[in-house]
Design a protein around this nucleic acid. Structure first.
Lengths: 337, 337
DNA sequence: CTGAAAGCGCTAACAG
DNA sequence: CTGTTAGCGCTTTCAG
């Protein structure tokens, strides 16, 4: 590997001179500049980023810790975060925890080791204390989508309760009385809030709450596939399902379609978060949705604010999701306000 | 930030001692070990990764450079690469180039600066020479899916020509004679090979090649949406389309569905790469497919081999994709061998 | 078994 | 305008 010293030797100058022509835009005589630049070119020198990080005390890198890289929701967040990073000339270290506490811990360990100057995280579980271990003063972070109430930090998320409430209310207005929910991990904030929104919508709609209609799933397609099967085997199956995320919607629809169950004729569906295939599904999907890209953008910007000034009070930003009506609920126009 | 020195001061020992109890599994008396570990715990010390990288001359990090984080194809590759990284106790730096040469260059610049010990890359364009700039001896890399013939390095990819040929042959066997293609970026290896496979299948099937049936798209859904529209406006529109990737399939189907064009009754579709919604689409998709996760796995393993021994000859690994028949081509059983 | 000292590649304060 | 020097936090000889 060619170093600054090699360049210095080649042109017969000191390392500091070389470093300066590299870092100060108008340094040295035309002559030296040209000579140095030429040597750098010839030798193929590139500054060692690690050494630079070391001396500058910052890495120019931020990390994004997410529970599932394969989920388009997080991937869109990543795009948002990345774009902001680029504007700030930062790099993005993407860490996929796979909903696994151990993996998350291992990444957090690296982060504590100053791998990055700050990070954005969507925690695996709200109950897990590992986030506490990292010193916010040293490495600021913002939580996204999933909040961890045991820790004080900025948070950017969705108004999950409202979203779920809105979705279920839509079902009720369409005349449904037997409404089930396939809900996500209950050790996460969105998992809890979306279930809560479902319950409150039923309550306000004076509908009874039926335990067997509440399926505790884990945000995965497989869990939703099984839940759908169980739901339909019930003595009085539901006529509608509110599904807590995009992946579970896929799982649910896979079951329905492979068993020739029609949507919305046999059963109605509302999904939290809109998959990109919403329109070309066998029954175009009605969804509650929010721009994940924008969330990522907001979170990253908040982080960069923190990076330059840690003193302002903690912020909590909630985006309001909107309902897009397609066919999967059996749109009854006169019922919609 | 608390450093080794702080720990040393606290227990009244030298930094080297602390470093040793940390790095050598059986060092020092029980007493000192316990004392040191306790101090580390109390102070909340974590080794500075940057300093470690510096002295060890390696970062324990590899990068994955991909053109689109939002494409599940690359995301599955990422999962594969990541899992192998984890086994080797490496971290994964994910770089999204967004099909943009400038972004790719900026990431490559960082990589040249020794941000990682090696990397896996799916290039933006085959014609671009920027990969040449990085010194393979210093930082080995393996190309994935997209090959750059101007550079000598390991490559893991799909047998794109075979896949396309197989897909189009399937269409021909189903009785189609007017077969169009929506093909991907022609400055990429898979873009070229898939088009080539299409052309050769037509040739071998004694079908004429119709220029207006060849749509030069760019792998994006939008480009395919427009291409589909144009195709259907032709005087004699095709009865079947071979589509060069998953995203373009989405775009194509979006057009068809929104214009009430039935699949396969009005037009047949085969897609290269299988989206996870293949089964729940309004017309379940027939696809040519390969495991992207596995590709990622293979590429990463190859990279780690290189990392420990750069001397063996360059490898080129091609995975053979398989056809999954659903409904979108109008399955005619007796015609399939 | 432990400490002092050198040095990884670079930047920046300090001299000349 | 340029060179010398001192570190950043850590590991690793080399002495004691």
């Amino acid at each position: 590997m060619v170093t600054l010293k090699d360049v210095a030797n080649k042109v017969g100058m000191s390392v500091s001179t070389i470093s300066r022509v590299l870092n100060e835009s108008d340094f040295g005589s035309e002559n030296t500049r040209i000579k140095v630049l030429k040597a750098i070119e010839e030798l193929g020198y590139t500054p060692n980023t690690v050494a630079q990080s070391m001396i500058r005390g910052k890495t120019n890198q931020i990390a994004l810790v997410i529970p599932d890289v394969c989920n388009p929701f997080y991937t869109n967040i990543a795009r948002g975060v990345e774009d902001v990073c680029l504007q700030h000339k930062y790099r993005l270290l993407l860490c996929n925890t796979d909903e696994n506490l151990e993996k998350q811990n291992s990444y957090l360990e690296g982060i504590r080791g100053r791998l990055c100057d700050g990070f954005v995280i969507s925690v695996v579980s709200e109950d897990d204390p590992s986030l506490k271990k990292i010193n916010y003063q040293d490495i600021p972070f913002v939580m996204i989508s999933r909040k961890c109430s045991c820790v004080e930090a900025d948070f950017v998320g969705i108004d999950d309760h409202y979203g779920a409430y809105r979705a279920v209310t839509h079902l009720i207005r369409n005349g449904h009385k037997k409404i089930a929910t396939i809900s996500g991990k209950q050790d996460t904030y969105p998992g809890q809030m979306r279930l809560q929104g479902y319950l409150n919508a039923l309550k306000d709609g004076r509908l009874p709450i039926e335990d067997s209609y509440i399926c505790a799933c884990d945000f995965s397609a497989e869990s939703a596939y099984r839940a759908t099967r169980d739901l339909l085997k019930l003595e009085t199956p539901p006529t509608a399902i509110f599904i807590g995320n995009n992946l579970m919607t896929l799982g649910c629809l896979n079951y329905l379609h492979s068993h020739n169950i029609r949507v919305p004729e046999d059963i109605a569906i509302v999904s939290f978060y809109e998959p990109d295939w919403a329109s070309i599904c066998f029954s175009p999907l009605t969804c509650i949705d929010v721009s994940a890209y924008e969330m990522g953008t907001i979170a990253a910007e908040l982080l960069f604010e923190r990076l330059s000034d840690a003193s302002f009070p903690k912020k909590e930003i909630l985006l309001t999701p909107e309902l897009t009506i397609r066919k999967s609920c059996g749109y009854k126009k006169h019922l919609i306000p």
